[in-house]
Design a protein around this nucleic acid. Sequence first.
DNA 1: TACATTCGTCGAATCGGTTCGACGATCTGC
DNA 2: GCAGATCGTCGAACCGATTCGACGAATGTA
Lengths: 333, 333
Amino acid sequence: MATIGDVAREAGVSRSTVSYALSGKRSISRETRERIDKAIDTLGFTVNAGARALATSETMVIGLLLEFHDDEFPPAMLQYILAVSTAAREKGYDILMVTDSDGPGAVKRITSSNMVDGVVLLDVTHDDPRLDALRAARQPGALVGLPRDTQDVDVFDLDFGEAARMLVDHLYGLGHRKIILVSPPRHVFDRGGAYAWRFRDAAVERAARYGIQIYPYYGESQQPGISRSLNAILDARPDATAMIVHNDASIAVLPAVLHERGVQVPRDLSVVSLYSQDFGRSFLLPYTAVETSPDKLGREAVQHLVRRISDPDYAPTVAKFIEPELTIRGSTA
Amino acid sequence: MATIGDVAREAGVSRSTVSYALSGKRSISRETRERIDKAIDTLGFTVNAGARALATSETMVIGLLLEFHDDEFPPAMLQYILAVSTAAREKGYDILMVTDSDGPGAVKRITSSNMVDGVVLLDVTHDDPRLDALRAARQPGALVGLPRDTQDVDVFDLDFGEAARMLVDHLYGLGHRKIILVSPPRHVFDRGGAYAWRFRDAAVERAARYGIQIYPYYGESQQPGISRSLNAILDARPDATAMIVHNDASIAVLPAVLHERGVQVPRDLSVVSLYSQDFGRSFLLPYTAVETSPDKLGREAVQHLVRRISDPDYAPTVAKFIEPELTIRGSTA
DNA sequence: TACATTCGTCGAATCGGTTCGACGATCTGC
DNA sequence: GCAGATCGTCGAACCGATTCGACGAATGTA
């Protein structure tokens, strides 16, 4: 591997001159620059990332922390990963992806060893143990998911409360008075997945305000439990005229379950949900739904993180809740 | 951030002594070691990864290259990612994940800048342009997926030919003489996804040997095309008594399609497929199938890569085809 | 014409580690 | 009791970049 010294020798200049030619931080004469450029590509020189990181204390790498739980649905997770990765690359950053089950340890390890310039935490829970590790680290972080204590951190999430209200309003406006709500699996609540209860509580409260019935249930995460639980719910509430499904795994399975029961949408039952458009396309989901925008979320998190990396006290911390958008797909009446 | 120099001063020894205490490459007296240990945790010292990488030219990072195509099914991809990530961490490596659409460029960038010690290429195609970049790099690489030219590279893949033969044999043994084959989408063939035709060709050849009929079709990757194409295929071949589905997206949708047509498995149609057990659990896939073992594949690739990193000319290059295992789930008769 | 700027380049210091050779002290074997 | 090996430690060189201050030459200004 050629070093900057080799380039310098080949071009007959000093190392610092090569460095300045590379960075453009000082002016270089045209002919010198040409000699350097030629030397660089005869030698096939590339800057050594480690050496540069050491000198500049910037790695141009962002840590991406996630843990895959059994109660999560793979396609959704992958969408976040790709969004973060793509957005980062556009800003010139690479992604160090850590899927360690010891989240706090992983945060500590990659930040304190200076492997990254900042981190993105995916799927942050109410009492996420990674937060202490992040605060102890002297590096910026962006969270996707809402923790209890948002002090000193930047948070990005969908406004699940508003999403719930939108969906309840939509159904209420169409005349529905008894609504089933399928939440994420109980595990998600236990683990502290705030989005689960933020959505449920808002839906329940909104329903109460309208004086209508809402029947909350937990969904399941794996087959055959998903179908079974959906059937049980439908059996238990034959009077319900509408259903809100806040669970990827359940919504993916719902079409089959309804078909098997001979239930037609929206004639017999109105169905609304939350999922991203891409997700809906992989399956056959023709439901009116709130768009969850994983790409927008990932992108915003990265953008903000990058800004904070270049200027650590750039702005007050941010808790950005992106606005839900309702896409009408005709699954309600 | 504390440096090794700070630790040395705090413990009253030289920097090299601290380094040796850390690495254990020379012996250290008990009391010195204790002073150093104490200094390390009063100062909260962690080795700077960049500096270490510079000195040792080892980053302890593995590059993971993948590109997500629309014609792929997200859950399967995620399984590979997690497998590689987990296996790497167990060996002490972190993962630099690159999802660049410019594959060769990405390979060149991360290898020639010495950001990684080696790379894993996911979903390698017949004429994968990343291979030239990999060969030009002076770093070991492990491929998942089979390229045309396997010279100087280590390849890991399922033995798709054998898998096809197993499934055909299985059906033939049960008396089936007219079999539908749903391959991956045409795009996958065009792109050079060798697994697609390795499977198809082996199935066709085996069927020919038995003198039975096999009807090959392309699958689709996105709804509603998937259902539509499955229906069209079933309409076109009412005489077929069995079906081999080599496509994640199609198999995930198949239960619904069959149910809608009133086709019972295995009474009216025998179905076999290829998918991983985890994948089957997310959906409701009760089909006799060959296990695709993404975890085993990812793990083996990483293990071999790590070995080659520590000893670049450790062994002849490897083309390892893991043996398909047939799991009988009663979807055939 | 004399002086102050700007331009282009260089040398040296620095980032934070690892590792080699040296060296005194301790231990071993005869 | 002495030569030789081993142990524990240190200092210095090195890994490959960046960046600061300096300095001669070219340019601009009065």
